[in-house]
Design a binder for these strands. Structure first.
Length: 501
RNA sequence: GCCGCCUUAGCUCAGUUGGUUAGAGCGCUAGAUUGUGGAUCUAGAGGUCCCCCGUUCAAUUCGGGGAGGCGGUACCA
């Protein structure tokens, strides 16, 4: 490999968690982005693009005790020593944008945005250090109708890209309801000192789907040791409180109305909790009115989401099928979309409270998950260009003009730019996925003709021929036409394949 | 971060109980076929057996350390 390490320069390699995207995958990604965009547009959101780099403090990530950006964020210092960071989501930059342009924006302000975001953490299946998100947010209203729309948007978008109803589920909860439960076990938000305990309880609840009731019970109490021997400290609740929390988690039932009925008594007495249940009830009625039933949006008490800034309804979308890797191992992809209400985020920049809610689709993860489901990488093979073969290098201008004529007619075409012989050129055309090649050697020039070989048709004809000599002499799917008919003939061939496909 | 498994050709993997020329399939290049992609046949190129240190007459193989990959766990805006 690197026999002469000093002479061959640096090793050509990529940092972990990053990957190159080839043409086929790129086309698949673009197709997905187009579908998402059209749904977002239809819901009335306006596009907005903000830079990949922001001041670190605008992203809001400082360790409390250090004058350094948080780990997990790619950061560096500018000439003036100010800390800059690569954005780790599209929400924090939105909050900055809204605060900066508040006077000029119509309220509620609704925008969508897509782009790559960066997280400096350990990669995994469907987890990258650079990935694409597609967000839609509504800023400037505290109506939970905006939250309901987020759930609808997630569901509708997933269906637009081909996930059938039932193949995904948007799980809905409310931070207010969670706070109500915390209040019920005596560690209400606001009562400082129990902060760590609250985080522990919420994190434990979030792990219900992965660890089951027993695992969550351990994490709520003394702690849990996983199969690799790693120990996770528990929240240290007493048995009575653990039972209460577990009872709450099991309140999510088959239908939203059943879940609401079960939730109500569990938060009774907590004003926050009751308000949360009321929010969910209103969202439920809006979803129902819009035709989004229990089969696509469900209430799930174990949905917690980020601990930093969500203040009201929270939701996440996941694919319901079990994804199995090539060697039969089930893979855990996590949610492919999520969101929630973050009423405090814009306020960080301006004294005044600005309620907001939004959702985000993890495009890269979604694509990876769908690819894994399909048993291979997401590929959208495009059709290659028509290749004009170079039979005689002295005639390059002639070939160039043919390629240009095809291009002028809107046909993807190129003159062969390498220096190899005809056989290699045919191979090249084959590998490029060319629908046909244009051949003009001395004989054809003398007759004022060109040979056009249909490679797709030719490949089909070849299947029946096993003798190479016969195959060559038959010249399947190859026709000779006058130079003046070149464009029309190529167009016919393309049209034939387009309608066949 | 912690735990476990893994690392041999471009790819997927054999193999060497420590021994002199390390293999296969696929892929790649060329020829059979001076102007025809497929198939077939033939030939060829391509390896510091992840790196470093140690044990040994001898290490790709054994031991220690490191790096990279995979998985679990923690964290997750």
């Amino acid at each position: 490999m690197a026999k002469k390490k000093q002479d061959t320069g640096p090793e050509a390699r990529l940092p972990k968690g990053f990957h190159d995207t080839d043409a086929a995958e790129l086309r698949a990604t673009r197709a997905m982005l187009d579908k998402i965009r059209s749904v977002y547009e239809r819901y009335g959101f306006e596009p907005l693009e903000t830079p990949a780099i922001e001041y670190t403090d605008a992203l809001g990530k400082f360790l409390p005790d250090q004058d350094r950006p948080n780990e997990g964020v790619f950061s560096f210092q500018d000439d003036d020593e100010q800390w800059l960071s690569l954005r780790y989501d599209l929400t924090a930059p939105l909050a900055r944008y809204v605060a900066q342009n508040f006077q000029a924006l119509p309220k509620p302000f609704r925008r969508y945005a897509t782009g790559t975001v960066y997280r400096n953490e350990k990669p995994g299946p469907g987890r990258f250090r650079q990935f694409t998100q597609f967000d839609a947010d509504t800023v400037g209203t505290d109506s939970v109708a905006a939250d309901a729309e987020c759930c609808m948007l997630l569901a509708e978008t997933l269906e637009a890209i081909g996930v059938t109803r039932g193949g995904y589920l948007v799980k809905l909860n409310s931070r207010k309801v969670l706070d109500g439960v915390l209040e019920g076990i005596g560690i209400a938000p606001g009562a400082d000192g129990d902060h760590a305990k609250r985080l522990g309880v919420l994190r434990a609840m979030d792990k219900l789907d992965r660890l089951g009731t027993e695992g969550v019970a351990l994490l709520l109490g003394a702690g849990r040791k996983d199969e690799s021997g790693d120990f996770t400290a528990g929240a240290g609740l007493d048995a009575r409180s653990i039972d209460k929390v577990l009872g709450f988690l099991s309140a999510a039932n088959a239908s939203r109305s059943a879940a609401l009925a079960a939730l109500s008594p569990l938060v009774a007495g907590s004003a926050t909790g009751e308000a949360g249940v009321a929010d969910l009830a209103e969202i439920d009625s809006l979803l129902t009115a819009a035709g989004f039933g229990d089969d696509c949006v469900a209430i799930d008490a174990s949905v917690v989401r980020g601990l930093e800034y969500y203040t009201g309804p929270v939701f996440e979308a996941e694919l319901t099928s079990t994804i199995v890797s090539a060697d039969g191992q089930p893979m855990r992809f996590g949610s492919v979309g999520s969101g929630g209400r973050y009423d405090g985020l814009v306020q960080r920049f301006m004294g005044q409270p600005v309620p907001a809610t939004g959702c985000s689709i993890g495009v890269s993860r979604l694509q990876a998950a769908l690819a894994a489901l399909a048993g291979g990488a997401a590929k959208a093979e495009g059709q290659g260009p028509v290749i004009v073969l170079v039979m005689d290098r002295a005639q390059l201008p002639r070939y160039q003009s043919m390629a240009q004529a095809l291009r002028s007619a809107g046909i993807r075409a190129e003159m062969y730019l390498g220096t190899s012989g005809m056989k290699a050129q045919m191979k090249y055309a084959d590998r490029r996925g060319a629908p046909c090649v244009v051949i003009q050697g001395g004989d054809e020039i003398a007759k004022g003709e060109v040979q056009i070989k249909d490679l797709i048709e030719g490949a089909k004809a070849a299947a029946a021929i096993t003798d190479n000599k016969e195959w060559k002499e038959a010249r399947p799917a190859q026709i000779s036409v006058a130079v003046s008919d070149l464009v029309a003939t190529v167009r016919e061939i393309l049209a034939r394949h387009a309608s066949a496909a």
